[in-house]
Nucleic acid binder design. Structure first.
Length: 812
DNA sequence: AGCACGCCGACT
DNA sequence: GTCGGCGTGCTC
């Protein structure tokens, strides 16, 4: 309900301000903050979100809104301040922030579409058009609707714009604005009920009788449910309905993303330690903002603590948000929450279809659930009255979104808790350096879980120095005798082994024997990877593929040597070494088909697999009780990346992988092969000692003024001309440096580094440069970048792109 | 984003 | 001479 004559609206366009519109009296009653409106903007119509009512429109003649697109707000009014905070902090248009937060499919805007006129059709049929015109007409007719953008993009004609204009003038085509809505709508399904009795008698076939009996038994059944029993039901139902035997009604259904049903469970008795942690939060926080870092070793029962806190919160009539990392499957944590809380839980997740996502969202807005569990976007869940926010595995990189609005859900969870006045719990066995530093600085309170619930010892971790096998023959260089023996022993005991290598494919470094050049992608600056399964070389960045039979593009030689190895190669080596073992591989290649992941995971759990080889998707979040051996083929792959967090990520990954061993009753064993056994990261991983890692990492971060000892904003500049991007990057950097110089108070507090060429200088035919801005003051950084973007010199022109990444996770 | 307005090069 | 390219600015 709006009482004022005007409203403030955030439009879904890349503009930083919001705009004022007039609301006609008859629409005031149906308008509320959080609803979408269709508004005229320039000469088009776009979606906007109502932010608030407004008394006046100083200085402008406000346009009238065209329509209200919702009958219920999509998010509570209280969430708008959160959106505004995000917009300001990440320097991102408010309308787009809201659009990112909402499930996709809510946006509507005008799109220019091209149509063939009657005369155009006639001229085409009678060959009265030029070949160029014919091509345009045909490509429009090919599709149901053709947008102007598509047409221009798909055409190879360089003067396509002129041609279109001419054709429009000659009345062969028309271009007009069509209001486009994308994606999902509320799902309504047909339900079949018993009819009021037949008006006309129909002859009863066997099938008809069976159908009627079913409907009668169930009273009410969905058409899909019916179809499962009687495949021809849709055809059968129509005459029956017309004759009055049954009734068909439409009703909204909530699509259920949770394929597997979960057995309900009962809360177990908490251990004394868990009890203490739960108390600690309950006693202190109440309705106040209070951030915690829960550091608990694997198997110490973090999830049970979360569930107890959530239970407590919903008892009090408040809501809870639980964030889990984005992984290939519905995670263990998610299943356990559903087992405990049943239909009080909504799930938000990238694996959901657009429609399923929309339904989950509506469940939250309509207050049908109390708990949301999901990946990073769940931090936007439209709850009011939040009682607790939990971030599980808070160190996980997947909380950072790397496209569009580049937010970090873990950081936003803390912000949201602050705005809502509630506790926030970040949990991890291997906390991020940042979060732990917050404990050191007493910004976060630390909660500790130090004993494993089942008292199983941590796995024994053995390092194998790969330098000793440099000259070894055959597979010994990759699967060292120590590892091979351990696998053999594991198989002989009838246990399972997990072999981890964070690189997929067969050969990762194909080199021409004659000219010495490596085979690289046409569009990106990386070498291609050979995939035996597909019989081709692939580029892992842009997807470009070439046949294995190609000749060297540099010299035409046919002799290409396959150096470097990935999971596919390791799999084939294991096959040769252990012909009796049942093998599976889990990486992007083997799981790309729908349902493949579940199939592999199930066969591991059912022990139909003896050895599983995989990338990090295997390392995260899964619980395989009968895996007793974990082999890490090369522990330092991610260590040498040019990125200040490379060490942190490696430590976390190795700790995670090692944690897969010995989750059942038999103690686990981990063999880690490495070229740097003496490196502190590897050493800390071996001891599973977070604190040792942290102590060693901190001085290095401090010395180089990397987070958490500074804040950073990274500017990513790209374009399709190498020379132009270079010049553009230099210009932007120069503007920044000049601004810092000019501001007395910034001189010593802000550092502008670069521009430098990105570590991968070209991806998908775009040349990449970057600038890094560091400062201890986040506010100062934010201000600097904002005023830089006000300078017309830094506006990206033809073909250039400028991306602002606040708190970048990876600098590559 | 997308559209109008305004300024320069290659064609009827 | 103009048509149509692209850079610039604005949209309540």
């Amino acid at each position: 309900m709006i009482k004022t004559p005007y409203i403030s609206v955030a439009v879904t366009l890349p503009v930083m301000q919001s705009y004022t519109y007039r609301v006609p009296d008859q629409l005031k009653a149906v308008c509320s903050p959080g609803m979408r409106v269709l508004v005229p903007f320039g000469r088009r119509r776009v979606t906007g979100y109502i932010l608030s009512g407004q008394e006046s429109c100083d200085g402008f003649t406000a346009k009238k809104i065209l329509d209200v697109l919702d009958d219920h707000p999509l998010f509570p009014e209280s969430q708008i301040s959160f959106f505004k905070w995000i917009s300001n902090y990440y320097i991102h248009p408010l309308g787009d922030v809201i659009k990112t937060a909402l499930p996709s499919g809510f946006d509507r805007h005008d799109v220019s579409c091209v149509f063939v006129t009657r005369q155009g059709r006639h001229s085409l049929n009678n060959a009265k058009v030029t070949p160029g015109e014919a091509q345009v007409l045909e490509s429009i007719l090919q599709k149901e609707s053709c947008t102007l953008k598509q047409l221009v993009k798909n055409s190879k004609n360089t003067t396509i714009n002129a041609l279109i204009r001419r054709m429009e003038k000659n009345d062969l085509i028309t271009v007009s604005a069509v209001l486009k809505k994308d994606g999902a709508t509320i799902k309504k399904e047909k339900f079949i009920l018993c009819g009021d009795g037949p008006k006309t008698a129909l002859r009863m076939s066997k099938k008809r009788e069976k159908l009627l009996a079913l409907v009668k038994k169930k009273q009410e059944i969905s058409l899909t449910g019916l179809k499962a029993k009687i495949p021809t039901a849709p055809a059968l139902i129509k005459p029956l309905a017309e004759a009055g035997y049954v009734k068909i009604i439409q009703r909204q259904v909530f699509r259920d993303p949770l394929g597997d049903p979960v057995e309900p469970d009962r809360p177990p008795e908490l251990t004394a330690e868990q009890e203490r942690v739960v108390r600690q939060v309950q006693d202190k926080s109440g309705q106040r903002f209070s951030p915690y870092l829960l550091s608990g070793i694997t198997g110490s029962g973090k999830t049970e603590v979360y569930m107890r806190l959530v239970w407590d919160v919903i008892e009090k009539g408040r809501n809870a948000i639980v964030l889990v990392p984005e992984i290939s499957l519905i995670s263990q944590t998610e299943r356990r929450f559903r087992a405990r809380f049943g239909d009080k839980v909504a799930v938000i997740h990238s694996a959901l279809s657009k429609g399923e996502l929309l339904d989950q969202w509506r469940k939250i807005v309509l207050k049908k659930v109390k708990i949301v569990i999901g990946a990073r976007s769940a931090v936007f869940a439209p709850f009011e009255n939040i009682g607790v926010i939990i971030v599980d595995e808070e160190h996980d990189g997947s909380y950072k979104q790397e496209t569009g609005l580049r937010y970090n859900a873990r950081d936003l969870a803390v912000v949201r808790a602050k705005l809502n006045g509630c506790p926030v719990i970040l949990g991890s066995a291997t906390p991020s350096v940042q979060s732990y530093q917050n404990v050191v600085l007493k910004r976060f309170e630390e909660l500790k879980l130090e004993t494993r619930i089942n008292r199983h010892p941590l796995p024994e971790i053995i390092l194998v120095d790969l330098k000793n096998y440099k000259d070894a023959r055959g597979s010994d260089r990759i699967i060292t005798p120590t590892l091979a023996q351990a696998i053999r022993a594991c198989l002989d005991q009838g246990k399972q082994a997990l072999i981890f290598l964070n690189r997929r494919g067969f050969a990762t470094f194909p080199v021409c024997m004659d000219c010495g050049k490596s085979l690289s992608c046409k569009y990106c600056d990386i070498t291609m990877t050979m995939h035996k399964g597909h019989n081709e070389y692939q580029c892992h960045l842009c997807g470009y593929a070439r046949s294995v039979n190609i000749k060297c593009p540099e010299c035409g030689s046919k002799k290409i040597k396959l150096l470097g190895f990935g999971t596919e190669k390791v799999e084939s080596m294991l096959k040769a070494l252990f012909p009796d073992a049942r093998l599976a591989r889990m990486d992007q290649d083997s799981t790309s088909q729908k349902g493949a992941t579940i199939k592999i995971l199930k066969s591991i759990r059912n022990r139909n697999i003896d050895i599983v080889v995989g990338t990090q998707m295997l390392a995260k979040g899964h619980d395989f009780p009968s895996i007793t051996l974990v082999g890490v083929i090369c522990a330092d792959l991610s260590l040498s990346l040019p990125d200040f967090r490379a060490g942190e990520r490696t430590f976390q990954l190795l700790a995670q992988v090692a944690g897969r061993a010995g989750r059942g009753d038999t103690p686990g064993k981990v063999i880690m092969q490495t070229y740097n056994p003496e490196h502190f990261i590897i050493e800390a991983s071996r001891k599973q000692d977070f604190f040792e890692f942290f102590q060693n990492e901190v001085p290095y971060r401090k010395a180089l003024m990397y987070p958490p000892f500074s804040r950073m904003i990274q500017l990513k500049l790209s374009g399709n001309s190498a020379a132009k991007v270079k010049v553009y990057a230099a210009t932007v950097a120069q503007v920044l440096k000049a601004m810092v110089e000019a501001q007395e108070n910034q001189k010593d507090l802000v550092q502008v580094l670069g521009p430098i060429e990105a570590s991968i200088p070209k991806i998908s035919s775009r040349f990449r440069w970057q600038i890094l801005v560091k400062s201890p003051s986040s506010a100062m950084l934010n201000q600097l970048i904002k005023s830089m973007m006000d300078n017309p010199k830094t506006k990206p022109k033809s073909g250039m792109r400028l991306i602002v990444d606040v708190d970048p996770y990876s600098l590559m």
